[in-house]
Computed example of a mutant assay.
Amino acid sequence: MDLARQMQSIDHDAHRIADAVRRNPTGRVTSCPDWTGADLLAHVAGFARYLTDLFAGAADNDTEFPKVPPAEAAQTYDADVARLLRTLCDTPPDAPVSHWAAVQQVAASWQRRAVHELAVHRWDAETIGGDPAPVDQDIALDGIAEFFEVFVTTGIQAGFVPPAQATLVLEITDTGTRREEHLPHPGSVTTMRGTASDLMLALWRRRDPLAFHVGGPREMLEHWPAI
């Protein structure tokens, strides 16, 4: 995915988050029931500020994630997102930028992360009193890849997720493709089937992974971590 497409996706989702929340800032986010819409907007504003500071060298991996008060975020969200977009767009993908995960320590890793952070939270925002639109297919496919390449890999290497002899197969119905992931060693196969959007959101526990289970042990999905 090129940088122009990434920036288009982030910009589009950022505006859709704001639109959904501003219609009902006190509404409950169904997919994250501890949050109101105002809380979600504050979280995204904090992400935007953190990443902007990280790229500028004003934050590092030990910097605490900014806790933006919802009332403040309601006023600053548009400016926070605009600064983030300018920063991401103006930074060469190969520029050095520190990252907490076991990935290349370059801007591209965060440019990718921002796409999926905003895509998932756009879906969250649209659960406030409504039926959210699916994640775009190309974004969802890369989101699935990022989940395994970054979060699962880092979790296993850091010891947060115990290594397993297990294999997860994703049958992606809207592309007719199949993805096989060993966690990290081959083992009993659990299969999920759904659209790219369905499966990305299920991996992030926004949708019930068991709703897409079609074969093999269910235990992996029953105990799938909530992130």
Rank of each mutant, 00 (worst) to 15 (best):
A164H: 06
G176P: 04
R179Q: 15
D174C: 04
G176D: 06
T191N: 07
P163R: 09
L170M: 12
T177H: 07
H185F: 13
V169H: 00
P163W: 09
T167K: 06
T173F: 10
T167E: 10
P186D: 08
I172L: 14
L183H: 03
E171A: 13
P186H: 04
H185V: 00
T173R: 01
V189G: 13
T175M: 05
I172E: 07
T191G: 11
G187L: 02
T167F: 02
L183T: 05
E181M: 04
P163N: 04
V169G: 01
P163F: 08
E171T: 10
E180Y: 00
S188K: 12
E171G: 00
P162T: 11
E181S: 03
M192C: 10
R178T: 15
L183C: 01
V189E: 15
P162V: 08
M192Y: 09
V189S: 05
T167I: 07
L170C: 00
R178C: 07
G187V: 04
Q165E: 15
L168N: 07
T190K: 09
G176V: 11
P186T: 10
P162K: 13
E180K: 12
T167C: 10
Q165R: 15
Q165M: 10
Q165P: 00
P184H: 05
A166M: 03
E180H: 01
R178F: 00
T191M: 02
E171D: 15
L183G: 09
R179D: 13
H185W: 09
T177E: 14
L170D: 08
D174P: 07
G187A: 07
A166W: 12
T191D: 07
D174S: 08
E180W: 01
A166I: 00
E171V: 13
T173M: 11
P162Y: 01
D174L: 07
S188H: 12
S188L: 12
L170K: 00
H185E: 15
P162E: 14
